Simulated scan of single mutants.
Amino acid sequence: MTFEGVLTKMETEFTQPIQYYLVFENDFINMNQLLGKIMIMKFVKYQCLNCGLDKPIFRQGFCKSCFFEIPQAADWIMRPELSTAHLDREDRDLEYEKKVQLQPHIVYLANSSNVKVGVTRKSQIPTRWIDQGAHEAIEIVEVPNRYLAGITEMALKEYVSDKTNWRTMLKNDIVDENLVEWRERLKQYIPDEAKDYFIASNTETNLEFPVIKYPLKPISLNLVKAHEYTGKLAGIKGQYLIFEDDTVFNIRGNEGLVVNISVK
């Protein structure tokens, strides 16, 4: 079997374990079915997810010129506290910003390498947790816009991490935590503007990933430099492919690469 297309983050289905799909323009691969099989990946070229040109990818699947122009890559994407659509104030494209920012957002706790706080649109639960490789997660606050979620995250990250250690996550060096207790502990630090949106009733969500063998010392694959890689797929966690030789490949981090994939 041979497939070719531009990488975008894997689509997922919340089952036990998670089902993963690599979607190309005219085809898709159920990645779970490739566990235990040999994959040959080849770098073909770049294809910016916005302009479609064969230009080096800068960040988030976009070439450098697109990254600094399009609303999908504005600062408020990574820093939600910078959102201004609720003030009717444009950053790059007010219509797009209203569409994304003025919808329900969740502030959550997720445990992937450690307990961390994060923000996502309500429509992205549990997808966001899956993409981070969290084995357990819980919602703290549901607010009507991205700005309120952003300032809540800013307040809470004084007391809990907002980062995931990807190596620890992939090695599965994890400790189960009582996220309900964490939520109750952090409640007092929620900003006044968001206190009324506190969620007190939810239990934590548990996630199971399709992994045969976790890597002892994850080695990140740079497919552009290597140009080609052959390995046996041993697992999928977060947006990473895990291979038997401890090589790992971050699909999300390589969006915008056109690849050729053969399966033996």
Rank of each mutant, 00 (worst) to 15 (best):
I140T: 05
F249Q: 07
L22V: 05
P56I: 08
K213I: 14
Q101P: 05
L102V: 05
G235E: 07
V211A: 15
V180L: 00
G133N: 05
I261C: 05
C48A: 06
E69I: 03
I199N: 01
I236S: 11
I212L: 15
K122I: 02
V160K: 05
P104N: 00
G133M: 11
P71G: 12
E81F: 02
L257C: 09
L82V: 01
T2L: 12
L102Y: 08
K225V: 06
R92P: 03
P104C: 01
G52K: 11
E90P: 03
L241F: 14
Y197P: 15
V23G: 10
N145Q: 08
Q16K: 06
T8F: 02
Q124V: 02
T203E: 13
Y21Q: 10
I125K: 13
K195G: 13
V248I: 15
I106Y: 03
T164I: 12
K98G: 14
P215I: 01
E153P: 06
R183C: 01
K264R: 10
K187P: 00
Q132S: 07
A110I: 09
E255G: 12
A226T: 02
M1E: 13
N222C: 13
F24P: 00
P144L: 07
I77N: 15
K45Q: 12
E136I: 14
W182E: 01
D91W: 07
D173N: 12
K45I: 11
D88L: 12
L7C: 12
V44S: 00
I236Y: 06
M169D: 08
G238M: 07
M10A: 13
E153D: 04
F68A: 13
N30K: 12
Q16V: 09
L257H: 14
V175A: 01
N172K: 07
A200F: 10
L216A: 08
R146E: 01
M31N: 01
P80V: 00
S123N: 14
V141A: 00
A137D: 05
T203L: 12
I125L: 11
K237I: 02
T127H: 14
I138F: 06
N111K: 04
L241D: 04
T164M: 09
V100I: 15
I199D: 04
